[in-house]
Design a protein around this nucleic acid. Sequence first.
DNA 1: AGCACGCCGACT
DNA 2: GTCGGCGTGCTC
Length: 732
Amino acid sequence: MAEPILKVALDAPVMQAFDYLPPTAPVSLRPGQRVSVPFRSGERVGVILELAEDSKIPRDRLRRIRVCLDPEPLLDAKLMALLDWAATYYQHPPGEVYAAALPRLLRRGRGEAAHQHAWRTTAAGIAALGEGSLARAPAQARILTELIGKPWGMPMEELRRFGAATAKTIRALATKGLIEKVRATSPPLTGQPAPRPGPILNDAQRAAVEQITGSSGYGVFLLEGVTGSGKTEVYLQCVAAELSRGRQALLLVPEIGLTPQLLERIRARFPTVGLAVMHSSLSDGQRLDAWQRARRGEARIVVGTRSAVFTPLADPGIIIVDEEHDASFKQHEGFRYSARDIAVWRAHQLDITAVLGSATPSFETLFNSMSGRYRKLALPERTGAAGHPSVHLIDLRRHTPTDGLSAPLLAAIGRHLGEGGQVLLYLNRRGFAPTLFCPGCGGTIDCKRCDARLVLHRDRNRLVCHHCGAERSVPAECPECKGTLYPLGQGTERLENALQMHFPDAPAERLDRDTTRRRGELEERLARVASGRARILLGTQMLTKGHDFPAVTLVAVIDADQGLFGTDFRAAERLAQSFVQVAGRAGRGDRAGEVFVQTLFPEHPLLRLLVQGGYEQFAREALLERKAAAWPPYSHLALLRAEASRAEIAQDFLEAARRQAEGLDLSDITLLGPAPAAMERRAGRFRAQLLLQSPKRPALQRFLAGWRPLLAELREARTARWSLDVDPLEAD
DNA sequence: AGCACGCCGACT
DNA sequence: GTCGGCGTGCTC
C-alpha cells in the first residue's frame, strides 16, 4: 500500500496547500497537527489539513515531513472547518488563514506554553509576618498577607494589580527568602464556579437575560441598548449562566473596548473563574498561554479583540460580540475577515448562542433583526435617574463660529461649567487646522505623495500628512506666490486653544491620537477626567468608544457636516453611529444631559431625523436609500483593489480582471469600474478598484471562486499589487 | 511573502 | 574584473 500524501497549510500567499510525504520516523499523522517541513531552501511550520491518496505533483518530486510537532492535533475538526470556510469565503490563502489563527510561538514551532511564574510565601515568610518583623516595610507586608491565602501563588501580573507590588518589593521579599518563585498553576476548579451576585436587573435586562439563556442551540440575538442601558450586565449574567452549565464564554470587544475597567468588572464578578485575555499588546508567551488555557478549558471566559474569534474552546457555550458595529472587527489588510460575521458562523457551526450588542447596530445586523434572522432584544431604559438628553441644532449660517465655536455653544458651555458639569466636545479631526491656505493664489500645501492636504500641527510646528505620515516644516510664506498662509478649518488642537482662551479657569483634556501616543497617557488623561480635575473634555472618535464620563452634562458635536455628504455608501451610517455614541455620553447617573450640534445644514432630512427620531428611525430611512441604490444589506459586495507605482499599472490589471470576469458566468453579478480609489494617490502609490455587486451571496461566492484563480494567473497581476476584499466596509 | 536566479552600473 | 540593483518566478 502506498504511503499517504499529507496536505499541509503553509504561511505562503498560495491558494493551495502543499503536499508532503510522511516523515521517516513512524508517527500517527492526523489533521490539525503541526509539522516541520522542508520548504525551498529552508524549513517551515505548517498544519496538516488532510491525508490524501495522491497528489498532482509526481511522487518523486515530493519532499518528506521532517518532524511532527504535536503528538495530538492542536486544532480540532470544528475549528479547522471554521478556518477552511473562512479561507473559502474570503478567497484567502488557507496557509495565511491558519497562521492568523495560531499564536506566533506555535507558528514558529514552539510547543507548550512558556509556563508563567507565580510567587508563593515560604514558611519563613509566614513566620516573618507573624513576628511582625516587616513593620517597617508595609508594602512587603501587604503582599505577604495577600499571598498567604493563595497556596498556588499569584503571578506577577496579578500582584501588580494590588498597586503596592512593584518589581522592587517582590525582589526584596525574594532576596530575604520570604517568598519563592514557582511554576504557575491554575487553582483547581471547585465544582460550579460561583459568581458574585450582580446588581438587580431592570425589567428589560431581565427579559433579555431570560431570552438568551432560555434559548437552546443556535440563535443570534441583537442586544440593542443605548449607552448606559446596562448591556454589560446582561452579558455578565449570560456568561454566568453558561459557566453554570459547564460551558465557556467568548467575548469579543473592539480594539479600544478592551479596557482595564471591563476586565476588572469581569474579575470582580467571577473571582474564581479562569479568564484568558487576548489582545495585541500581549507578549508572545502570554498570548500562547491564554490560547492554551482556552483550548484546554482552564480559561472559562475568553475576552479578546478581533483575532480572538479563532480561539480554540474546549466547551463553547456562547459568543458575545460587544459593539458589533465597530469597524475594528473587520481586518483591513491581508486576510480581510469580519470577526463579527465569523463569530455568527461559528455559533451556527457549534449550535450555540451568539449575542451582538450595540447601541447603534450596523445596518446589516439591523436588517437581519428586521427580517427575523436575528432576535432583537431592546434595552430602552437608562439605568440611573437621568433621562434622555435634549438635543439642539445650532445653525452655523446664523451663528458664525470663531475658532469653531458659535455664540450659543459658548453660552451653553459657560452655563454647564458654572453649574459644575463637565463638558465634552467632539471633533473628528486631529491637529490645529486641516489646511494651510493662501488667499493670494488660492493654493494649499499638499502632500507630495498623497492626494491630500497637509495638516498643521502647531504644537510640533510641523505639517503632517494623516494618510502617509509624511512631515515637513511649516513654510513661512506661500511657495507659489509668496503670499501669507492662513490655517483654515478646525482641528482638536485649535479647539483646545480656543477653549482655554474662553474658559481659562476650566482645565481641558484633549483625547486624540496625538495626545495619547505615549503608553499609559490615555489612562492618565482619563483619570484626570474621572477625578473631575479636568472640566472640559475634547477629542476625536476616541471619545465615542468605551469610556464612561459620568459627570459630563453637555456634549457638543463641533462639526456634524463631515459625514453628511460622504461619497461612501456607509457615510450616513457612520455619522449616525458616532453621533449617537457621543451624544450618549451626556448625562449619566443622576444628571440629565444636553447635546448641541453645530451644522450648516440644520434642515438636512437625515440630520433632522437622527436628532428627532433617534438611531432606529434614522436607520429605517437610511435603509430605504440603501435599498433603492442596491447597496448592502440589500446586496453583497466584493472589491478588487489594486495599487502600483503608476496609475496605468493598477488600471491595466483591473481592466484585465474585468475582461476575465466577462468571460465567466455573470448572472446576478454587476461589475462596477475599474475606477480610481477615493484618494487615488496615497504614499506615492496609485490606487484603483473594481467593485462587484450581487443580490445573492451564493452567486457572488460562486463567481469569486471561479474568478480568483484566473486573477492570480494574469500577467498584469505580477506588476500590480492587488487584493480581494469580500464584504468591504467601504466601497466609495 | 521570502528567496533565489538573472542580467546591467559603480567600486576594491 | 566583481558587488549588487530589484524585476521575475516559484515554493510540495
